[in-house]
């Protein structure tokens, strides 16, 4: 017989303070309290609060800030961090210049959630790992040093790239996969200067501190993203999402691909995957391999194998070692029309 003492449980639905500033400066000031958090769409944060995973003592509602514009700035499309997922997905500029982003957004969540969720919030959403959400099971991401339940547990949805001993969770976003593929830049305000972070460096791998999903610092606010316009990519891009049901489900794996063709030759290519790592996973080796090669099934297959070179599975997610390359190949086949 073993006497088990349970640690103090986190407290769901704790009451909290609420403020709604109207300027960026006031928002940053209001969020300086250690247990303050920004809220915009709330589609993940409110869920996390209900389950006691996150327990802010103050919410700083930033939806009054003027950060929802979508516009062309030179060779870039700027998207304000408060732009709604549904608005971005259907915006003329996005459909014309960044169809990959539009497709990825449409593949995410449901119409109602896309009407609430913002671009910045989408970037900040947390993993869907079942252990992360259950306060009675270990999770290093939720409760540092409590252990990882998934690694030797049920890990069908989990990472095959870049995981650590501490955490094998995946980032659940579709939008971010497209933005990573499209070489976006994240614009961050901190009250002094505007910080610019390449999208691929915004999210981090779990490493030894999986409690941190990304490199945003306390007291910083995402103001928007900039995405370079590439006319060729706009012509040939595709987001493929494989999931357990046809809609309203997180990805088993997803692939964002954009091609620039020169006849039958691939002049340039962008490839990223979702559902496979703690961050959107750029497939740079596969990209390098395919540049200047012909768009043939054999080349696609080899690129997919190269992409999976460093992949590892944890048991239940072993199928991803096959599903991931197959989805890459399928996406490239479709995109190249073969």
């Amino acid at each position: 017989m073993l006497l088990v003492k349970w640690l103090k449980k986190e407290a769901p639905v704790i009451n909290f303070d609420y403020v709604k500033p109207t300027t960026e400066q006031n928002a940053l000031t209001a969020c300086k309290d250690p247990l303050a958090q920004f809220i915009a769409g709330g589609t993940n944060l409110v869920d996390l609060m209900k389950r006691g995973v996150t327990n802010p003592e103050k919410l700083v509602d930033i939806t009054g800030l003027p950060m929802s514009n979508i516009e062309q700035k030179g060779d870039n499309i700027f998207i304000g961090s408060l732009a709604l997922n549904s608005v971005v997905a259907e915006h003329e500029l996005i459909k014309k210049h960044l169809p990959l982003l539009s497709q990825a957004l449409q593949a995410g969540a449901s119409p109602q959630i896309r009407n609430m969720a913002t671009v910045g919030g989408n970037m900040m959403q947390r993993t869907r790992c079942g252990y992360f959400y259950d306060l009675s099971m270990p999770c290093n991401k939720r409760t540092p040093n409590s252990g990882c339940g998934a690694k030797e547990g049920y890990n069908r949805m989990h990472a095959i790239f870049g995981a650590s001993d501490k955490c094998i969770a995946v980032h659940p976003s579709d939008m971010c996969v497209a933005l990573a593929a499209l070489d976006a830049t994240v614009l961050i305000a901190n009250g002094k200067l505007l910080r610019r972070v390449p999208f691929k460096d915004f999210h981090k791998l779990p490493g030894s501190n999986p409690e941190k999903d990304n490199n945003l610092l306390k007291g910083e606010l995402i103001t928007g993203v900039e995405v370079p316009i590439n006319a060729a990519f706009a012509q040939h891009s595709l987001y493929t999402k494989i999931r357990d049901r046809a809609s309203y489900a997180f990805a088993l794996v997803s692939v964002a691909a954009a091609l620039e063709m020169n006849g039958k030759t691939i002049k340039d290519i962008r490839l990223a995957m979702g559902g496979v790592a703690h961050k959107p996973w750029r497939l740079t080796t596969a990209e390098q391999f395919l540049k200047s090669k012909e768009a043939t099934p054999a080349n696609f297959k080899q690129a997919a194998m190269l992409a999976l070179k460093d992949a590892t599975s944890y048991g239940h997610n072993q199928f991803k070692l096959t599903l991931a390359p197959n989805t890459i190949v399928h996406t490239l086949h479709t995109l190249a029309g073969i």
Binding site: M1, K8, K9, A11, V13, G52
Partner: peptide
């Protein structure tokens, strides 16, 4: 409802586990 939900989270139990 909110107060009941929050208060429910404050219940603490110790168990003899089998």
């Amino acid at each position: 409802f909110e107060r009941a939900t929050h208060a429910a989270s404050l219940i603490k139990a110790q168990y003899n586990k089998e």
